[in-house]
């Protein structure tokens, strides 16, 4: 309990730090938003009025505090580009990114773990070697290139989906989820290969310990030893890793959304950085960063739950 409290406290401090840093990062960017918004309609009086409206005349600290209190209450400000609340700009985009990250995380877990166990148990030298080599190659494929390959084979050759034609959740849920499967695979496959490799080496490390020899001496087969004795222990480091992979899945979606033309947070973030629409960019950065910190927090909590020894460090 004490451990959880301590971690929760650290979580709150990190969230606060993120908000300060994200706010500062987008405040130090040179250039006057009012001039940018007005464009050709610029007059000094109008700019002054707009600055007043946007609250840009106040000091940095005042602006930060009012932004933070609005943000916590669910109002992250007004978009410089569309003149509508950031909330409305974001609506519908969050679901896409969250769904994409969740699906890819599930694929990572559902393929990475069995593959790792399989690679550890496989003793036929050729097959084992083939597994290790292809695993290493898949790990080296950048997610966006994996996305391009999947688009090519499944989209353009097999015509299972139309690249760039994202149906959207309101349109048709099953079709949308099916479309999301491919970008999710692009994010997940290289990561799953990493998880498989990690689990394999974790199992092989355990296999050298004394209790494994004892288990063998009691007549267990290699598979029984792995299944009943080794796996539990070998999973410990992997579980923490999997929880942190969730954050990687979110980060991966920033790029992969671009490959599959998905209307998610990542694409919006890139577009708003390109358009200098900083309230939107800032909001997305804070949300993704908060999510990442929260996932790491969960990873800490889970790992101390499955392995209480963690608390001692």
């Amino acid at each position: 309990m004490k451990y959880v409290l301590k971690k929760t406290g650290l979580l709150l401090v990190s969230l606060l730090l993120i908000s300060v840093l994200a706010f500062l990062a987008f405040s130090v960017i040179p250039g006057d938003p009012a001039t940018k918004i007005l464009g050709t309609q610029y007059t000094p009086e109008r700019a002054e009025q707009l600055r007043e409206e946007l609250g840009l005349n106040r000091s940095l600290v005042e602006r930060y505090l009012s932004w933070l209190s609005d943000f916590v209450r669910g109002d992250p400000g007004t978009s410089y580009n569309y003149f509508i609340p950031v909330r409305e700009v974001l609506s519908g985009k969050i679901q896409v990114t969250v769904a994409l990250s969740l699906i890819s995380w599930l694929i990572i877990v559902l393929t990475g773990l069995p593959l790792g166990v399989f690679m550890a148990k496989e003793q036929r030298p050729r097959l084992g070697r083939f597994g290790i080599v292809s695993n290493q190659v898949v790990m080296a494929v950048p997610p966006f290139f994996m996305g391009i390959l999947l688009t090519y084979f499944f989209g353009l050759i097999l015509k299972l989906f139309t690249p760039g034609n994202f149906p959207g959740f309101e349109e048709s849920l099953p079709q949308t989820l099916f479309y999301l499967l491919f970008p999710a695979l692009a994010i997940a496959l290289p990561k799953a290969a990493g998880v498989a490799k990690m689990l394999r080496s974790s199992i092989l490390k355990e296999m050298r310990l004394d209790y494994v020899r004892t288990a063998y001496s009691r007549g267990n087969s290699r598979w029984d030893v792995i299944k009943n004795h080794v796996l539990r222990n070998a999973m410990l480091p992997v579980i923490t890793f999997l929880a942190m992979t969730m954050a990687d899945a979110v980060a991966g979606s920033i790029i992969v959304e671009q490959v599959f033309a998905l209307p998610g947070l990542g694409r919006l973030l890139l577009a708003s950085i390109g358009n200098r629409d900083y309230p939107v960019a800032q909001c997305i950065v804070v949300m993704i960063a908060a999510l990442v910190v929260f996932m790491n927090y969960l990873a800490d909590i889970i790992s101390q739950y499955v392995d209480p020894r963690v608390r001692l460090n």
């Binding site: 990062a25 960017i29 993704i288 960063a289």
Partner: peptide, 15 residues
């Protein structure tokens, strides 16, 4: 180190 590098890189590029 806890943050995805791509997110930080994007913020840096924005600046």
């Amino acid at each position: 180190l806890a943050f995805p590098a791509i997110l930080l890189a994007l913020v840096m590029v924005a600046i």
